[in-house]
Design a protein around this nucleic acid. Structure first.
Length: 592
RNA sequence: GGGGCGGUAGCUCAAUUGGUUAGAGUCCUGGACUGUCGAUCCAGUGGUUGCGGGUUCGAGUCCCGUCCGCCUCGCCA
């Protein structure tokens, strides 16, 4: 029997046609000796097959009666309107296939789980990942894989039209000192020497610019040996891009066009206005370098007003270098903010380094609870500064600017979730620009790259690169959607002298830099064009497009939090002979 | 590496203060049923309570260790 249609393809206009479907038995309903219903499922959907003694022979009905969930069968039959009621839950619900012949292509063992979207929400992820081949049969997983495919296809179409070439870069490369922990691979030919798997193709794509490639695209795997999270895997996929002879705004224009195309074609959503927001503004207003613009709850600086109280939490914070007092007005939250809830927010604030989270409610009786008694003289000014109305609550952060921003920013996110302020089906994008070049690494007492060591300082910042590294702004940019960093990149350094200065600020000696990045420094000396680029996190984009907060949902064969694959049981041991060939020996870890 | 939650039948869960033979639904097996669609009804099979130790007359339950899964802090240029 040769398949003629997909299980989700048949409609009332196919009435009278003979069709052959093949797929998995989704459910069966055995009505007795003479009548059996089979819901047959494939990638395209589900069709109801009915076997009736009046329409086919005993043997066919008996075979049909023997079918169980997830058996694989082919069925030939006549398409006709349903004799019983139509099933509005199915796209094919107005028709059924009057089964004439059935061929069992493969029986299944009793399946440990069923590919049912409703069940899947209850089944532990551990079991789903162990039997991933069954889990992936679910309509929802098939839909996500389709979205992922569409994104990859649109990516190639769009950037092809923009003159980009898809070029592969190596997987076995040299380990680089900066950044995440490398996965390493032993060299057989040079025992004791190692390759690293790429954390990103960064250096290679820059060298492709030096090579005159002009515009590069790659959908590539990146590997970082760090602990995973709900939105992070050690092995993930980037849409990696680099362009020559461009400035920042030309890059942003092209990339913005890409994002609009993706959201238009996959979600039928118009991204609307996409503002460019300096990093310092994002931190000050939202307490995050990836602000979620779907709701307000902006951080407001009330340092001037707060400085007029005797409240020690405020005055001591303001006495610090770059100390501030900031506040969030939470409209109408006075009633719902129980002690338990605000204590929870205080925990979040503390987790992000704040000492606590002063809170107050503003009602018809004025300020109540929390730090109300300390606000006596400044109450009226606070009301007008924050635009308070009766029934509002106010959350404060008093600390250095950085700590106040980040702790209050984290609280802002949780408050928005709790107060149900995040609208569904809304996508708000922005560019965050003008990042600092460096952040101070307190542990190692040195400057570290905010983005990566190849990010160019903004042209107007070159003169303070060495005199004031902490204040120097870069030509970097992040694309942020709904509070999620979907992509990030920069204009790169194309001048070897500037690159050397940056390495030296990062405390990389000339010798080290030469050993680790010598080939890049060399390339920059032989006619490097101005260039810049970006990388989008493909997995995170699919998460956004599919509306899931679990990255494992958008990866066909993901790894667990311990980096294991429950289906294939990776990682695992290797033969002694393999180790011998590599001149490797496994040494027992001494007890500690 | 730290913190939190969890692991009992193939799957989802229950099991009182530590106390009789560890139960239910579902799946599966057998039977009934000619318009079902989460089919229904009847009967039955199914257990290393993650693993290893300990306390106890007695441990799913308490203690110690360990493995696994999820969330999270550190980490993720």
């Amino acid at each position: 029997m040769k398949r003629t249609h997909g299980c989700g393809d048949l409609r009332i206009e196919h009435d009278g046609q003979t069709a052959v479907l093949a797929g998995w038995v989704n459910t069966f309903r055995d009505q007795g000796k003479g009548l059996v219903f089979i819901d047959l499922r494939d990638r395209s959907g589900i069709s109801q097959i009915v076997f009736d003694l009046e329409d086919c022979d005993d043997e066919t009905v008996e075979t049909a009666r023997s079918l169980r969930r997830e058996d694989v069968v082919a069925v030939r039959g006549l398409v006709r309107p349903r004799e019983g009621k139509a099933n509005e839950k199915l796209a094919t619900g107005s028709i059924e296939i009057m089964g004439q012949a059935v061929e069992v292509l493969n029986r299944t063992d009793n399946p440990p789980i069923l590919p049912d979207d409703h069940e899947a929400e209850k089944i532990s992820e551990e079991v789903r990942l162990t039997y991933r081949y069954i889990d992936l049969r679910r309509p929802r997983m098939q839909e996500i894989m389709r979205i992922r495919h569409d994104l990859a296809r649109i990516t190639r179409e769009y950037f092809d039209q923009q003159g980009f070439l898809e070029i592969e870069t190596p997987l076995l490369i040299k380990s680089t000192p900066e950044g995440a922990r490398d996965f390493i691979v032993p060299s057989r030919i040079y025992p004791g020497q190692w390759y690293a798997l790429p954390q990103s193709p960064q250096i290679f794509k820059q060298i492709l610019m030096v090579s005159g490639c002009d515009r590069y695209l790659q959908i590539c795997k990146c590997l970082r040996d760090e602990d995973p999270r709900a939105d992070r895997q050690a092995e993930f996929t980037q849409i990696d891009l680099e362009l020559s002879f461009v400035d920042r705004d030309e890059v942003l224009d092209i990339m913005e066009g890409f994002m609009r195309e993706v959201f238009n074609r996959i979600l039928k959503e118009d991204l609307g206005d996409i503002p460019k927001m300096p990093w310092s503004e994002a931190m000050d207003r939202y307490g995050s370098d990836r602000p979620d613009l779907r709701f307000d709850l902006e951080l407001q600086d009330i340092s001037e007003i707060a400085g007029r109280t005797d409240f020690r939490v405020f005055t001591e914070a303001l006495a610090k270098e770059d100390g501030v007092v900031k506040a969030i007005r939470v409209p109408g939250a006075a009633d719902s903010f129980s002690r338990k809830i605000t204590d929870g927010y205080a925990e979040i604030a503390k987790m992000h380094g704040a000492g606590g989270l002063p809170t107050v409610k503003y009602t018809a009786n004025g300020f109540e609870t929390g730090i109300a008694k300390f606000l006596g003289d400044i109450g009226d000014d606070l009301v007008s500064a924050l635009g308070l109305e009766h029934g509002d609550a106010v959350l404060f952060a008093a600390d250095t600017r950085e700590l106040a921003n980040t702790s209050l920013g984290a609280v802002r996110l949780q408050v928005a979730r709790d107060q149900d302020l995040i609208p569904a089906g809304v996508y708000r994008a922005l560019w965050v620009v003008d990042f600092p070049m460096f952040k101070w690494d307190e542990d190692n007492k040195r400057w570290a790259s905010e983005h990566h060591p190849f990010t160019a300082p903004r042209a107007d910042q070159l003169e303070i690169l060495e005199s004031d590294p902490g204040g120097c702004l870069s030509d970097g940019y992040d694309f942020v959607v709904n509070g999620s960093e979907a992509g990030g990149g920069s204009i790169r350094i194309h001048n070897p002298e500037v690159q050397k200065k940056v390495f030296s600020l990062l405390n990389l000696s000339d010798e080290e830099a030469k050993m680790k990045f010598g080939f890049l420094l060399d390339a920059l000396r032989f006619g490097a064009p101005p260039h810049g680029g970006i990388a989008f996190g493909l997995d995170r984009l699919v998460m956004l497009l599919a509306g899931t907060d679990n990255i494992r949902d958008v990866i066909a064969f993901p790894k667990t939090q311990n980096g294991g694959d429950l289906m294939s049981q990776a990682p695992g041991p290797v033969d002694d002979a393999q180790l011998e060939e590599l001149q490797l020996e496994v040494v027992e870890q001494p007890d500690t």
